[in-house]
Write a protein that binds this DNA or RNA. Structure first.
Lengths: 137, 137
DNA sequence: TTCCATGCAAAGGGTTTGCACTCTC
DNA sequence: GAGAGTGCAAACCCTTTGCATGGAA
C-alpha cells in the first residue's frame, strides 16, 4: 500500500479542480498512491481503519467526484457493484467470473480499430473492453 | 414484439438442453422472438401482462438459465442492473450514459485484435466491448 | 461569515434466498 | 412417484438521500 503523502494528495486534488477537504485528502492518500482495484465497500472498510470517523456516504461522494474529475476510473463487470481503478493510464481489464478476480491488460495487448460512425448527436466518451475469462477446472 | 410460438420455444429450450416447463416457454416466447435489450425488471413487468401468475424469482432464475445455456447474453453497463440481450450473434454495444439508451454495433463495425497471452490457468470466455457515448448538449 | 462538505441513519432499487406447493417426466 | 421447478415474501447487498452539524475559504 504505497500511500501518498497528504501534501501530494492536496496538490493532486487542487490540480484536478477539486476543493480540498481533510476527508478527501485521506481518501486520496489511501487510494491514489498506487494502482489498485477497489470496490466502494472495500474502500469504506479500508478507511474505517485509517480514518475511523469517515462516513460511508463521504466515500461514495468522493469516489464520484474523483471519477468526474478523471482521477479514477469506474470499471463495471458484474452488476453487483462498481470497481474503482486508480490507474488512469489507458489499459484494459480481464475479469474472472469464477473467482471475481480483476486484472489489468496493458493498452498494447490488444487493439480496437474501426470505430464506427456515431449518430451526429452522440459524442464518444470511452471504449471499455472487458476480457472475460474463467479459471480452468 | 414478434413473439415466438410455444412450439418453437419448446424446441429451442430442448435444443439448448434446458428442461421444458410452461413458465420457461412463456418467457422464451416473450423474449427470444426478436432481438431485444431488456432488464430483468422490464421482463418481469412484461410477463405480468402476458402471464400474471409468473413470479419475479422465476424470471430471474430463467434468465440465469438462459445465460448459462447461451440463449441470451448479459450486458453490464452501469452497476445498477443487468441488461439481457436476446441477440446472441457476435456484436458490440454502445451505451448513452445520459439517457440510459443501449444500442447494437454490428460485429464488423470494429475489430479487436492482438488477444493477449492469458495466464495458463485462465480460459477465454468472451470479450465485451462497450462504447460509451454521451448525447451532446 | 457563507456555503459546501460531512456524518448518520434510514430509504431505495435490484437481486437472491427459504420453504411449501406444483408440475414435468 | 420422485425430483426439479415455481410462487411468494422477506432478506440481502450496494448505493443514494435528507437533514443537522461542522469545516474550508
Amino acid at each position: 500500500m504505497a500511500d501518498m503523502t497528504p501534501e501530494a494528495a492536496s496538490a493532486l486534488l487542487r490540480g484536478a479542480g477539486i476543493p480540498v477537504t481533510r476527508q478527501r485528502v485521506q481518501i486520496a492518500c489511501a487510494f491514489l498512491g498506487a494502482p489498485a482495484h477497489l470496490t466502494a465497500e472495500q474502500l469504506v472498510a479500508r478507511m474505517r481503519e485509517q480514518a475511523p470517523g469517515l462516513a460511508r456516504a463521504t466515500v461514495y461522494n468522493t469516489l464520484g467526484l474523483f471519477v468526474a474529475h478523471g482521477l479514477v476510473r469506474e470499471i463495471i463487470v458484474d452488476g453487483g457493484s462498481v470497481i474503482y481503478d486508480s490507474n488512469t493510464a489507458p489499459h484494459f481489464h480481464y475479469y474472472d467470473s469464477r473467482s471475481g478476480e480483476l486484472g489489468d491488460l496493458p493498452a498494447e495487448a490488444l487493439r480496437v480499430s474501426g470505430m464506427p460512425q456515431l449518430p451526429p448527436h452522440l459524442e464518444l466518451e470511452a471504449v471499455d473492453v472487458i476480457v472475460r475469462v474463467r479459471s480452468r477446472g
